[in-house]
Amino acid sequence: TTVHIGNVTYHFDNPEEAVKWAKEMAEKLGLRIEIHGDTIRVE
C-alpha cells in the first residue's frame, strides 16, 4: 500500500496501518485523503 503526500511516497506492508497513518497526517495538515485501491492520496 502506498501513501502519497505531495511529491513524497510512503510504502506500508499493512493497508490498515497505511489508512490510519494517512488519516492522522491529513488531520495534522488540514487535508483530506482519497483511497484508490491500494493507493492513498493526502491532498
Rank of each mutant, 00 (worst) to 15 (best):
T1K: 06
T1N: 04
T1I: 14
T1R: 05
T1S: 07
T1A: 12
T2P: 03
T2Q: 08
T2G: 03
V3H: 00
V3P: 01
V3W: 01
V3R: 00
H4L: 14
H4Y: 14
H4G: 03
I5A: 03
I5E: 01
I5L: 10
I5Y: 06
I5S: 02
I5M: 08
G6H: 11
G6P: 01
N7W: 11
N7A: 12
V8E: 12
V8Y: 14
T9S: 12
T9K: 13
T9M: 12
T9I: 14
T9L: 10
T9D: 06
Y10S: 02
Y10V: 09
Y10L: 07
Y10K: 07
Y10P: 00
Y10R: 09
Y10A: 03
Y10F: 12
Y10I: 10
H11D: 04
H11E: 06
H11C: 09
H11I: 09
H11A: 06
H11F: 14
F12C: 03
F12Q: 00
F12D: 00
F12W: 03
F12G: 00
D13N: 12
D13I: 10
D13V: 10
N14W: 05
N14V: 07
N14P: 01
N14S: 12
N14G: 05
P15V: 13
P15T: 12
P15W: 15
E16V: 11
E16N: 10
E16C: 08
E16Y: 12
E16H: 10
E16L: 11
E16Q: 11
E16W: 11
E17G: 04
E17R: 07
E17W: 07
E17P: 03
E17F: 08
A18N: 00
A18F: 03
A18R: 00
A18P: 00
A18W: 02
V19L: 15
V19N: 05
V19A: 07
V19E: 06
V19Q: 07
V19H: 09
K20R: 14
K20I: 09
K20E: 08
K20W: 07
K20N: 09
W21K: 02
W21C: 03
W21L: 02
W21T: 01
A22N: 00
A22T: 02
A22V: 03
K23Y: 12
K23R: 13
K23T: 14
K23S: 11
K23L: 14
K23F: 10
E24Y: 15
E24N: 08
E24P: 01
E24W: 15
E24L: 13
E24A: 13
M25A: 05
M25I: 13
M25F: 06
M25T: 05
M25P: 00
A26T: 03
A26Q: 03
A26Y: 03
A26F: 04
A26N: 02
A26G: 05
A26R: 02
E27H: 08
E27C: 09
E27K: 09
E27Y: 08
E27A: 09
K28G: 06
K28I: 13
K28E: 09
K28N: 08
K28L: 14
L29R: 05
L29Q: 05
L29S: 06
L29H: 14
L29V: 04
G30T: 03
G30A: 05
G30P: 02
G30E: 05
L31V: 10
L31G: 15
L31N: 05
L31T: 11
L31P: 01
R32I: 15
R32N: 14
R32G: 13
R32K: 15
R32M: 14
R32Q: 15
I33C: 07
I33T: 03
I33N: 01
I33G: 02
E34T: 15
E34I: 14
E34C: 14
E34K: 12
E34P: 02
E34R: 13
E34G: 04
I35F: 11
I35R: 04
I35C: 07
I35S: 04
I35G: 03
H36M: 13
H36Q: 13
H36L: 13
H36V: 13
H36R: 12
G37R: 04
D38K: 06
D38V: 05
D38E: 07
D38Q: 12
D38S: 14
D38M: 08
D38R: 06
T39Q: 11
T39P: 02
T39H: 12
I40N: 01
I40Y: 01
I40V: 05
I40D: 01
I40S: 01
R41L: 13
R41N: 07
R41F: 15
V42C: 04
V42W: 02
V42R: 01
E43W: 13
E43Y: 15
